[in-house]
């Protein structure tokens, strides 16, 4: 297996796949193939982070809440996809149909969970002190993890490869896998769709207005509750797509994958300037590439350390993140 990908899986299952580098590996450093491989591994990782980070940043932008349960939505999306695809494959559906139906199911159910969580755990707390919804979110995160643990299993479940090895990828397959390509393409399409939605549709405009000033949005006749629900649904759908893609890439999931991925994605969102959608994407790609190159050229043990150190460094020099605006408080 290609080292970059091993490092990548190692990120999600810290002790199972870590590749200890030795002196011989140093020879790989200067090979262009290895570089490109790391580049693509980083881009793939960044794309997945971006799909999750967008949900964080949208929710934060609109209600100022760090939605700790967002990583769990991503995990539920992956699980739904696993269940649906297994059931369908038992009934003998073709691979493409399985992929599409699993994706649809993941999106539908993850959105439903996102919506329900907002209604149950956050909406009653809209006017509460700032930290109360945060605690509620942490509680929700713990609840959902254990819910999946109890309803399904605590073991790692193998996830079927939903993406076939494309014939046209054959010549470069040792550097870039077909799944990487699908992840990149799908996430870029999804991000473009999201941008179009936010920039040009009525709902998107309402979202932006609500993010700027909730009271004023209410006064000009925007149903703020609906807008917030839609934000959660959109964010959850993106996370579900991310969950599906990463699961079929890594090949196994368990109830805990949401937590670390969620934290990383949140880091990426903050890195780019939380609340800013291009910022989340930029932050995610920077984070993904940093992790990929750092693990490839330095050590895979300290992958997360690199990620968080990068965050600390960037925030020290740009306290509002890369693309975030440092607002001057009106006195």
């Amino acid at each position: 297996m290609v080292p970059g990908i091993v490092a990548f899986t190692g990120k999600f299952f810290p002790h199972s796949f870590t590749l200890l580098r030795n002196v011989a590996d140093i020879m790989d450093f200067f090979e262009p193939d290895y570089f490109i491989e790391l580049l693509f591994s980083g881009l793939t990782k960044g794309a997945i982070y971006a799909l999750i980070a967008l949900g964080y940043t949208m929710v934060y932008g609109i209600i100022g809440l760090i939605n700790f349960a967002h990583g769990e939505i991503y995990m539920i999306g992956a699980f739904t996809a696993l269940i649906v695809s297994t059931v369908l494959s038992i009934y003998g559906f073709p691979l493409l149909a399985i992929f599409i139906l699993a994706a649809v199911a993941a999106v539908v159910w993850a959105s439903a969970y996102g919506y329900t969580i907002e209604r149950l755990a956050y909406r009653p707390l809209r006017n509460a002190p700032r930290l109360s919804p945060l605690i509620s979110a942490i509680g929700m995160s713990i609840f959902l993890q254990n819910y999946v643990l109890l309803a399904q299993t605590s073991d790692f479940q193998p996830f079927p490869a939903l993406v076939p090895d494309f014939a046209f990828m054959e010549p470069v397959a040792h550097i870039v896998g077909s799944t990487d390509l699908v992840i990149l393409v799908v996430s870029v399409i999804v991000m473009i769709l999201l941008t179009v939605m936010i920039k040009f549709t009525r709902t998107g405009k309402a979202m932006r207005a609500t993010a700027q000033d909730k009271k004023m949005a209410l006064l000009v006749g925007i149903n703020v509750d609906n807008v917030i629900s839609i934000t959660f649904i959109t964010g959850s759908a993106l996370a579900a797509i991310g969950g599906l893609l990463i699961a079929s890439h890594v090949g196994q999931i368990n109830f805990y994958i949401g937590f670390i991925a969620g934290i990383k994605a949140f880091t990426a969102a903050v890195l780019g300037g939380i609340g800013s959608i291009p910022g989340a994407v930029l932050g995610s790609f920077i984070l993904g590439l940093t992790e990929s190159f750092a693990t490839g050229y330095v050590s895979s043990d300290y992958e997360d350390v690199f990620a968080f150190s990068l965050l600390v460094l960037i925030l020290i020099f740009r306290p509002a993140g890369l693309l975030g605006k440092s607002t001057i408080e009106k006195v």
Partner: peptide, 28 residues
């Protein structure tokens, strides 16, 4: 010293990151 000038939620994530860094260093 470096992080306390950050605003509320930025401070939150940086401290979270710092906590994870310490744990990971201890682990590795």
């Amino acid at each position: 010293i470096p992080v306390l000038r950050l605003r509320g939620d930025y401070l939150a994530i940086v401290t979270l990151g710092f906590g994870e860094i310490i744990r990971l260093v201890l682990e590795n």
